[in-house]
């Protein structure tokens, strides 16, 4: 199963939308860097990302942006080692930017 890594905010580029067009049940999706804004329940894109299994966001990026106390709903917050684990568990790994 593919792991998709997205690093841009959904308002910044088309990459999250393009990624979701090819996303299949069982694929993983990891939000990093500016893409973590999309993890918020109050994001305009919440409907695209909430209540899906296997959607993750990097803790370091959430903390850096002052989002720690905000609700990220069903999206799992993971650390850098768990990021590595995801790339071990999935193949191929596709980056979207």
């Amino acid at each position: 199963m593919t792991l998709h890594i997205v690093n841009k905010s959904p308002d910044q580029t088309q990459c999250l939308k393009d990624c979701l067009r090819v996303f299949r049940p069982g694929d993983g999706l990891l939000l990093i860097e500016d893409a973590v804004y999309g993890a918020l329940v109050n994001s305009p894109y919440a409907a695209l990302l909430q209540n899906r299994p296997l959607v993750y966001a990097l803790i370091a990026d959430i903390e850096a942006r002052g989002l720690s106390a905000m609700d990220t709903g069903s999206i799992k917050r993971i650390n850098d080692k768990q990021f590595v684990d995801l790339t071990v568990q999935h193949s191929p790994v596709q980056s979207w930017y």
Binding site: T2, R21, V22, R24, D27, P92, S95, W96, Y97
Partner: peptide, 17 residues
């Protein structure tokens, strides 16, 4: 087609974007 893209990508070992 849109519904073929995901399965197509999953056939590869490496994806360079």
């Amino acid at each position: 087609a849109a519904d073929e893209l995901g399965d197509f990508i999953a056939r590869f070992d490496t994806v360079l974007s």
